[in-house]
Amino acid sequence: MSPASSGRPTASHTDKAFESDLRLVREKLLAMGAKVEEQIAKSMRSLTDRDSELGEQVKESDLEINRLEVDIDELCRKILALRQPAASDLRLITTALKIVTDLERIGDLAVNIAERAMDLNQAPPLAAYVDMPRLAELAQEQVKRALDSFVRADPDAAQEVLAGDDHLDDLFVKIFNELLAFMMEDSRNIRRATSLVSICKHLERIGDHAVNVAEMVIYMVRGTDVRHPRSRAVES
């Protein structure tokens, strides 16, 4: 299958207002993506630097992400109703409608991390946070690469995000087992270690949302749906 469109605009639309609406969707998505990346980084710094002030900022900024989600949804609905987009335009709009949900969820997870961090900051730190910064880095990288693949309409880069999820999952299991050991060592660690497990789980979920975004980018560019290959194997 050799799709005609790479999902990236080449020739421009005869209708300039349509062209600018589509550009606006892309721009807003990028703004939302950048904001989300920043939220993950800040929420993790609020943990590692024990900076609860930063955690508060994360909660505050989430409102902006929510607003962007609603804005982008509305813009997409308007385009669907008024322009009846086709081909690559249609794929862009359906992609936008889906990935805003993932980005918004990532934002929420960053808030959850910040909340846990602020809670943990009340108590003395639990030894070192083992490999958690590394896990956060991986999650953030996955989000960044997924968004980059969207910007560049690059399905190969998106494919790498899909492959990269295993590293994240492996590291999560490793950290989980380490935290489990902490808990078994001393029951006074349980409360804090449990919070850390939650944070790790949130990071692992952020990775899953990055995968969702990457899958939609592949659809947007190639027009093929790569989700759930196993379910579809059963179906056919």
Partner: peptide, 11 residues
């Protein structure tokens, strides 16, 4: 209308 093969159709 969702995924034409040819660039001219797409355009």
């Amino acid at each position: 209308f969702t995924n034409p093969r040819e660039r001219r159709t797409e355009d």
